[in-house]
């Protein structure tokens, strides 16, 4: 005996009730439960759908789907970081490295001038202002995508929502930005490191808020074969 379409939908609802938010993991677990139920029906054809479902779920142990959810989250974060890293590496290869060096020099010259404090502030405001603007825009885009598809994908959420997380790191360094420039006169190494940090943070923000979201469809299709199904 095979499961009917409404029963499959019931299983999707069941995974949602057990805190599986994302469609890819839901799909995998629904197939697993369905297989288990069908197997049970081979031996006990009279067993009700509800009983068979609960029996199948019990096999996941007391934590239910929790371990699977957690591991999936970890795995997807790792994948996202991988994408970020791959894009960042490109900025240290030709031809982009020219832009990276120019950016670095700009920060270096600016921070070593006598207007350090003001220029730091200006850069800081421009970068964080842009990050907030992009972050809000992506969030809005994500909501619109949800309205259309009604399915949630973990990687999609990372691309559109968590992207602003990196910029938060930048924005949260407010205090340091105001105090660090005072130390530049005494230490060139410090100045170099500070310029490098600004360069890398600018790149990371640009990649996570602009480059990766623009490649979202490609990355989602690569990650989820069922994305376009």
């Amino acid at each position: 005996m095979k499961l009917t379409e409404p029963q499959i939908q019931d299983l999707y609802a069941f995974t949602r009730q057990h805190f599986v938010e994302h469609y890819d993991l839901q799909t995998e677990l629904v197939d697993h439960l369905a297989n288990d139920i069908e197997e049970q029906w081979q031996n006990q054809p009279k067993l009700s759908f509800e009983d068979a479902k609960n029996k199948a779920f019990k096999k996941f142990g007391i934590f239910g789907f929790m371990d699977a959810i957690e591991q999936k989250q970890k795995a997807m974060n790792k994948r996202y970081r991988g994408y970020l890293w791959n894009e960042l590496k490109k900025w240290f290869e030709l031809p982009q490295i020219i832009g990276t060096i120019a950016l670095f020099l700009m920060f270096y010259v600016a921070f070593s001038s006598k207007y350090t404090a003001i220029l730091t502030m200006v850069f800081y405001v421009i970068i964080s202002g842009w990050c907030i603007y992009k972050g809000t825009q992506l969030n809005r885009q994500f909501r619109r995508r949800k309205e259309i598809s009604n399915k949630k994908w973990l990687l999609e959420e990372l691309i559109f929502k968590q992207a602003s997380g990196t910029s938060l790191i930048f924005i949260s360094q407010m205090y340091n930005v105001f105090t660090i420039p005072d130390k530049f006169e005494i230490n060139t190494l410090f100045l170099l490191l500070f310029s490098l940090a600004f360069t890398v943070l600018t790149l990371v923000n640009y990649i996570s808020l602009k480059v990766i979201p623009s490649k979202a469809e490609k990355l989602l299709n690569e990650t989820y074969p069922e994305f376009s199904l």
Binding site: H32, F63, G64, D67, A68, K72, A75
Partner: peptide, 15 residues
Amino acid sequence: ITEGALYPALHKLEA
């Protein structure tokens, strides 16, 4: 193999 251990292991290997 328990279901609770299988899927985490599969997702880890995939990552």
